[in-house]
Design a protein around this nucleic acid. Structure first.
Length: 303
DNA sequence: AAAACAGACAACCGCTCATGA
DNA sequence: CTCATGAGCGGTTGTCTGTTT
């Protein structure tokens, strides 16, 4: 890991430039101190936490260590194939919104997913001829792009044609607890410019019409629906029925976060249903631009 | 056995947003 | 309304580790 004594970039001003603040990898002793303190006092007040806990770290570093490594809910180990598939689908919808994606994958952190994407999935997509940023075929040939696109989408979204059952003891897909972890403050910087009207496959989608009334819960519900594969079933070439609460498949918890019942996730999720038909029709209906979709939701959430 | 290389991932950094004074 | 502060996010860096030459 990093050498604690060395700074990665000489000219940058670190957040914790104070003398005596330790950097670099955490020791088991530091982990224990931090864990014990947070278990005792709870999370939050990160800026002052190091001093109160007796750690020579900056608050940011403590928060990161806790969130990405020490939290009891953090799941260690390899990314399972079903998790990978979910990451792929969510990335298609959301782009590099790692925190948002992580919020949908139990026990995984944004950092972990980001690392996995950069080291595994992006390369995997490239090897399949897919642009990992746009999820569209590389070297687009306008004449055959759609067909090729569909083909690649099908193969990328489900690399294994006969996957094992998704819901297992080891890999719960979306727990109700996880569903309630939907971030309350989705990051909003770096949002793309939104085309108000997207024309694709003969449809005109106006975000004012379709997303103008959406709020965060709606977006969350919508994601849940996509994950649970219950929005576009039997909807070929129809505009998506963006769930306007109350959505029949979403239980809104007391914290106003939609909850996907595990049984629902279990029973309704089926790899075959997530084949090209579903995903492609979804994205076609949405203009096949996950960033625009997500941005549209975010953009109008506050209006 | 040693060096070179590549992959994995923990950690850092700067930026943005939310909130309260 | 403005400013300061805290928190969270995504991009990037740097080190460790395993593999290849």
């Amino acid at each position: 890991m990093r050498n604690p004594a060395s700074s990665s970039s000489g000219t940058k001003t670190p957040c914790c430039s104070k003398v005596g603040i330790k950097k670099g990898p955490w020791t088991p002793e530091e982990d224990e101190v931090l864990s014990n303190y947070i278990k005792r006092e709870g999370e939050g007040r990160w800026r002052t936490l190091p001093k109160r806990a007796g750690l020579l770290r900056c608050g940011k570093s403590c928060r990161l260590r806790w969130m990405n490594y020490l939290r009891p809910s953090v799941k260690r180990g390899r990314i399972a194939p079903d998790e990978e598939d979910l990451i792929l689908r969510l990335h298609r919808l959301l782009g590099n919104r790692w925190a948002l994606i992580a919020g949908r994958i139990p026990g995984r952190t944004d950092n972990e997913i980001k690392n996995y994407w950069n080291s595994h999935l992006s390369k995997k997509l490239i090897s399949q001829g897919i642009d990992p940023r746009t999820h569209k075929p590389l070297n687009l040939n306008p004449a055959s792009s759609e067909q090729e696109h569909d083909h690649h989408l099908a193969s990328s979204s489900n690399p294994n044609p006969n996957p094992p059952p998704l819901q297992t003891e080891e890999t719960p897909y979306i727990s109700s607890q996880q569903a309630t972890n939907f971030p309350t403050n989705p990051h909003k910087n770096h949002e793309p410019i939104i085309n108000n009207d997207i024309s694709m496959d003969g449809f005109i989608i106006n975000h004012e019409d379709y997303f103008g009334h959406c709020n965060e819960d709606t977006f969350s519900s919508f994601l849940d629906s996509l994950i649970n594969d219950n929005v576009f079933v039997n909807q070929q070439h129809q505009l998506p029925q963006l769930p306007t609460p109350p959505h029949p498949h979403v239980v809104v918890s007391s914290t106003h976060h939609p909850v996907v019942s595990s049984s629902s996730a279990h029973n309704s999720f089926n790899y075959s249903n997530w084949e090209a038909d579903q995903i492609v029709s979804t994205m076609v209906a949405l203009g096949d631009n996950h960033e625009q979709t997500a941005a549209a939701f975010n953009n109008h959430r506050t209006i």
